[in-house]
Every structure is written in structure tokens, then in C-alpha cells.
């Protein structure tokens, strides 16, 4: 990473004796979508506030576009659009007026403002509803208006704090694809914080897992799962119409392959763990043996697994980190049961 647009060096924030953010170092390069992932209370919002210069770090440095955020917050805020997790609007103004007010605070010239506001409302899909009062807006619409708020300023970086909170599933999908599209079209750098694993997985180029104020790991999804699950990073699930034979020459043939680590057979489902992607070979082998394949699915390790794995390791290391670990556990198990 030669030209990081966000640079955090040893960033620390303590409230009394409790450390909300503990010696965080992170680099995010231009045009990237970075997912900051962690349970509630992990220090995600505090980190974001420090990048914006809204909170002073106890130690360390946050540099955005090469500017120190705590000593020169205004310059940082000119380049950076921030959408807080609970967004408020002036209820007695229409959505468009709300947006134009933000435009004025950013010194957008009056004659340009109205065109830009209309255009931004169209982009986020609120073109029809822009003259409604924001008090009549639904949660999802407010979230979109929040994005419009950020976009009208034409920032270089967008920081979204829990952007999908409280939107219905189809809304989330739309919202995330909108963010992804905008990022690709306009070369925006996006920092997205969430505790929703699947959503982050859908849009982010890179993720950082953040627990108890510390960044446990960062990297793209593939590297993350490779590091964690090591050898068994590809799992192939093949289902057959008839119950699969528990043994036989094809299973033997599979086992003979170097990269195959493990084969489990459960009725008409065969699971093959391997260290390389050998899907075509396996399928060809089964077809040649005359078996009726009804489905082939490559099982990728989701953030759920990654999250869980890291959490386990982390818990072993410090059980003392009571609060966040507890929250973490709860939020994880809730997901698991659901």
C-alpha cells in the first residue's frame, strides 16, 4: 500500500481506566471498500469519531488525506463524508431542504446547490419523495437521505457507521449495491462499520475484525479464511440423486489426489475438503463413474466462521476482557441459533 488515504498509527482512546480503542494501526488505500467489523461496544464508533476529529485520541495519530484529524478537523471534514449510525434530520423541513442546508454548510454555491441536491436525491432513489417532510420518512428512506447528505458534498472518503441498521433485507441489498456502485464509479474510498457479517462480506474489498478495542486481523476475505482454516480452505459439497456409496473406487481415486484432505459422506451428500480448487476434476470423476449429480456447491468460509474462529482464539488469550467478549458471544450465538 503505497498511498494510504487513511492512516491510523497507534491510536488509543481511554475512558478512565477502560480502553475503548487500544493501539490501533491501520492503513486504507484510495478507492477501497474497507469493512470494520466487530460486535457492539468494540470501539468502532470511537475510532471513526477520532478520524473525524470529533474525539481527541488519548495517544496516537489519525491521518486522513495526509492531514492530522485531531489538530485540523475542518480540513479533514472537507474531504470526508460521515454518516452516523443514528441519523437525525430536522423534522420540520422537507428532505430537500435538509439536504440543501447541508449543502450550504459546505459552501456550495446557491445556483449550483439546487441542481446538485436534485441530482443527489435521484441518485439515492428519493427523487419522488424529496418534497416530503423528513418526519414522514421511514427508516430506510432516512438512511438513503443520509447517504445523499454525504454524497452532495462530493467527498473523497465516505465513512458509514452501521449503515444497514434497521433496514429490511431487500433494502439492505439495494443500499449496499448502491454503495458499491458509487464507490466503483466515482473512485470513492468507503469505510463501513458493521456487526453484520454477511453484509460486509457482500461489499467489502478488505475487512478488519475489531474486538475489545483491538484490531485482531485485517485482509481480504480469501486471505483471512486461508490464514484461519489453513489447509482445509476449500470445501466442496456434492449431492447425488441416490444415496452415495460409502466406499468404492471413485472415493479411492479421490483420496489418491494430493490436495484432498478429507472426505465425509452423509447419505447422498459428499463433502470434500481440499487445499486447492479442484471442483472440475471432482465433478468429472463422478460423472465418468456414472453417478447422478444433482448439485455442486463450493462452500466458502463466511465471516461467521472467521469471526467465530477469531473469537475462540481471542477468548483463550484474554478472558479478562469481560464486557465485549460477553456481548460478542451473545451476538454470535444468537446468529447461530437463528
Amino acid at each position: 500500500m503505497e498511498n494510504p488515504i487513511i492512516e491510523l498509527e497507534g491510536l488509543t482512546k481511554s475512558y478512565g481506566s477502560a480502553k475503548a480503542v487500544d493501539n490501533l494501526s491501520l492503513k486504507i488505500s484510495r478507492g477501497e471498500i474497507f469493512g470494520l467489523l466487530g460486535p457492539n461496544g468494540a470501539g468502532k464508533t470511537t475510532t471513526i469519531l477520532m478520524m473525524l476529529g470529533l474525539t481527541e485520541p488519548t495517544a496516537g495519530l489519525a491521518r486522513v488525506c495526509g492531514v492530522d484529524a485531531s489538530s485540523n478537523p475542518i480540513a479533514v471534514k472537507r474531504k470526508l463524508g460521515y454518516m452516523p449510525d443514528s441519523m437525525g434530520f430536522y423534522d420540520d423541513m422537507t428532505a430537500l431542504e435538509n439536504l440543501m442546508y447541508i449543502g450550504r454548510l459546505n459552501r456550495i454555491e446557491e445556483h449550483e446547490l439546487i441542481t446538485r441536491a436534485h441530482k443527489t436525491m435521484e441518485i439515492v432513489g428519493l427523487g419522488e419523495e424529496m418534497h416530503k417532510k423528513t418526519s414522514a420518512y421511514s427508516r430506510g428512506m432516512k438512511q438513503r437521505l443520509g447517504l445523499a447528505d454525504v454524497l452532495i458534498r462530493e467527498p473523497e472518503i465516505i465513512i458509514l457507521d452501521e449503515p444497514t441498521l434497521g433496514i429490511d433485507p431487500s433494502g439492505i441489498k439495494e443500499f449496499l449495491s448502491l454503495i458499491r456502485r458509487l464507490s466503483k464509479q466515482q473512485g470513492l474510498t468507503v469505510l463501513l462499520s458493521s456487526h453484520h457479517l454477511h453484509q460486509v462480506q457482500q461489499v467489502c474489498d478488505r475487512v478488519g475484525i475489531f474486538v475489545g478495542g483491538r484490531l485482531l486481523v485485517e485482509g481480504d476475505m480469501e486471505t483471512l479464511s486461508r490464514n484461519l482454516f489453513g489447509e482445509e480452505s476449500y470445501v466442496l459439497q456434492i449431492s447425488f440423486r441416490e444415496p452415495a456409496p460409502p466406499s468404492g473406487e471413485h472415493i479411492e481415486a479421490l483420496k489418491a489426489l494430493d490436495v484432498v484432505k478429507q472426505i465425509t459422506i452423509d447419505k447422498n451428500l459428499v463433502e470434500v475438503s481440499c487445499s486447492e480448487d479442484i471442483t472440475p476434476d471432482v465433478v468429472r470423476l463422478f460423472v465418468q463413474k456414472g453417478l447422478n449429480i444433482t448439485g455442486v456447491r463450493k462452500k466458502e468460509f463466511g465471516l461467521d466462521e472467521i469471526y467465530h474462529r477469531y473469537f475462540e482464539n481471542n477468548q483463550k488469550n484474554n478472558i479478562s476482557n469481560g464486557k465485549s467478549a460477553g456481548l460478542f458471544q451473545r451476538s454470535f450465538f444468537k446468529r447461530n441459533n437463528a
Binding site: K77, R78, G88, L105, N106
Partner: peptide, 17 residues
């Protein structure tokens, strides 16, 4: 009231003193 409505955070995220 701005703080309770969440508009203060929004305001503070703008480049204003």
C-alpha cells in the same frame, strides 16, 4: 435537542467550527 435528535452529530460532521 439537536443532540437528542441526532442532528448534532450530522452538523458536526460538516466542515464548520
Amino acid at each position: 435537542s439537536e443532540q437528542n435528535n441526532g442532528t448534532l452529530t450530522r452538523l458536526m460532521a460538516q466542515p464548520i467550527y
